[in-house]
């Protein structure tokens, strides 16, 4: 075991603490899928199959077992990495896990793109806003923060498509890739794969396709960052340790970066962690708007075709990602703030 109080010890502890959280999440997914109205198997056949076929399907999926037995089977299956097989039209008989892993990189690429946009725009606007309190720039940016946060993501997506794809023709309106054969699958992230293969031309195509969806999702998230960064910066630029640093003759630039900004970042990182859930919900709508072939599209398609193992699998993977990200966020917080490492 690493030394107490070290970052490594903190990370390990945090990882173990996430196990109960994971179990709770799995339980919620299990319960929710069973209490929402509508029988998935009935929906699948839409009344067109004879009762014995329905019963056979039900038996095959283990849905005729008592709930507690279903629950144990489900948790055991998930923990061993088995998410079942698809019963929908598009992926019938295929492993749910493989289908999801195939779609996951697209969503990850979109999420990273959106987070980059949201962090850069949100932090920049927040710093300008927070260091120019009540001046016109601050008032304008606060207004921006509120408006951009309440705009529906699919509406913003369509407006951006209209302006930059249809109108100006700068970026494609749809899909992850077009025109050229897509790069060989290594990580599944087209931008990364094209660079790994040294194909700058493919990289540019991938980035071009990524710009509008990332901008759409990132802008919507940036409003929250603007407000959080601003509020926290206002708190820390007047902090006692900032005044004390000025009294020691520390240069102003260093005071803003090392004292005010770094301290303001702690709650921002925490909030950023909470934003991932909103990010993935927004990603479903963004993927739909831009025909971005990721997990969000897969989820919508699976709901349409009543592919219940697939829906369950996608939600479980979303849950896993959010648990993993919350651990990452906590470790980042530990990296910034020595007080949380205990």
């Amino acid at each position: 075991m690493p030394k107490t109080g070290s970052l490594a010890a903190y990370a390990v502890t945090r990882l173990f603490l996430s196990l109960p959280m994971l179990l709770i999440l799995l339980t919620i997914v299990f319960v929710v899928l069973r209490v929402i109205p509508g029988d998935p198997i009935a929906a699948l056949f839409a009344g067109r199959a004879p009762p014995d076929v329905v019963a056979a399907t039900r038996h095959q999926l283990g849905l005729d077992l008592p709930y507690w037995q279903q629950y144990i089977n489900y948790v055991a299956a998930v923990l061993t990495g088995n998410l079942g097989t698809s019963i929908g039209e598009s992926y019938h008989g295929k492993s749910v896990l493989f289908v999801i892993l195939d779609k996951l990189p697209a969503t990850v690429e979109l999420a990273i793109g959106a987070m980059i946009v949201a962090s850069i725009i949100g932090i920049a606007t927040g710093v300008v806003s927070g260091t120019n309190r009540d001046k016109p720039s601050d008032v304008a940016l606060r207004l921006y923060g509120t408006i951009i946060f309440v705009i529906p993501v699919f509406w913003l997506g369509q407006i951006l498509q209209l302006i930059f794809a249809v109108g100006l023709g700068w970026f494609p309106a749809q899909l992850r890739f077009s025109g050229l054969p897509s790069p060989n699958q290594i990580t599944g992230l087209y931008t990364v794969d094209s660079l790994l293969q040294g194909r700058l031309d493919l990289f540019l195509v991938a980035v071009q396709h990524l710009v509008l969806p990332s901008l759409t999702l990132g802008l919507v998230l940036s409003g929250f960052f603007t407000k959080t960064v601003r509020a926290n910066l206002l708190r820390t630029v007047n902090a006692d340790y900032v005044e004390a640093a000025r009294a020691r003759g520390i240069p102003e630039g260093r005071i803003i970066s090392r004292y005010a900004f770094k301290n303001a970042l702690i709650p921002v990182v925490t909030v950023l962690g909470l934003q991932f859930a909103i990010l993935f919900a927004g990603a479903v709508l963004t993927e739909r708007t831009f025909s971005w072939d990721g997990m969000g599209m897969l989820l919508l398609k699976s709901i349409d075709s009543a592919d219940y193992p697939m829906v369950q699998g996608v939600i479980v993977i979303y849950a896993l990602i959010i648990v993993a990200l919350s651990v990452v966020i906590d470790v980042i917080n530990g990296l910034i703030d020595p007080r949380v490492r205990y």
Binding site: D240, Y241, A244, A245, A247, G249, R258, N263, I336, P338
Partner: peptide, 21 residues
Amino acid sequence: RIRGEEIALIFQDPMTRLNPL
């Protein structure tokens, strides 16, 4: 330049005067 070098200041509340990070 004068602050810290020629005139130094200590405060009432030492608990909040050092950068926690």
